[in-house]
C-alpha cells in the first residue's frame, strides 16, 4: 500500500502528460493543438514541483518557528518554464490568426494537399 501512496502523484502527472501529448498529436484544430501543448507543459511543471515537496515542510519563505522547508530550486525552474510556455503560446496563436487569414481555415484536414501540419 505504501508503494502506491509514494508514487500515485507521479502516475497521475504521467497520465496528464500523455493526455496533453495525445491532444497535440490528434487535434484537428490548430487552437486545440495549442491547448494540448499547454496541458502537456503544465503537467511537466507538476512533475518538477511534486519532486520538490517535503511532507511536513512549508513554502520556502522564512517564517519563525518553521524548520522544514520544501526545496526552492524546482520552483525557480518552473517559474522560468511557465513564462517560456506562455511565450510559445502567444507566438503559436499569432501564427494561427495569420493562417486563418491566409488559408481561410484552421482545420488541419482542410489545408490543400501537401502543406498540412502534423
Amino acid at each position: 500500500m505504501s508503494f502506491i501512496l509514494d508514487y500515485y502523484n507521479y502516475w497521475i502527472v504521467v497520465f496528464l502528460m500523455m493526455a496533453g501529448f495525445y491532444i497535440v498529436i490528434s487535434a484537428n484544430n490548430l487552437v486545440k493543438k495549442i491547448v494540448g501543448l499547454n496541458i502537456f507543459q503544465t503537467s511537466v511543471f507538476m512533475l518538477y514541483i511534486s519532486m520538490g515537496k517535503v511532507t511536513g515542510g512549508t513554502a520556502p519563505i522564512v517564517a519563525e518557528g518553521v524548520t522544514q522547508y520544501s526545496n526552492p530550486l524546482p520552483h525557480v525552474l518552473i517559474l522560468t518554464a511557465i513564462v517560456v510556455g506562455v511565450a510559445t503560446t502567444a507566438v503559436g496563436l499569432a501564427l494561427v490568426v495569420r493562417i486563418k487569414r491566409a488559408y481561410g481555415t484552421v482545420e488541419e484536414n482542410e489545408f490543400d494537399n501537401k502543406d498540412d501540419v502534423i
Binding site: M17, F21, V24, L30, K33, L37, F40, Q41, V44, L47, A81, T88, V91, G92, L95, V96, R98, I99, A102, Y103, F111, D115, D116, V117, I118
Partner: peptide, 20 residues
C-alpha cells in the same frame, strides 16, 4: 506560416522532452 506552425509544435515538443 504552416511551416512555422509545424516547426513550433514539433520544436516545443522536443524542448519539453528535453525538460522531462
Amino acid at each position: 506560416l504552416t511551416a512555422a506552425f509545424r516547426y513550433l509544435v514539433m520544436g516545443t515538443i522536443g524542448a519539453t522532452f528535453i525538460l522531462i
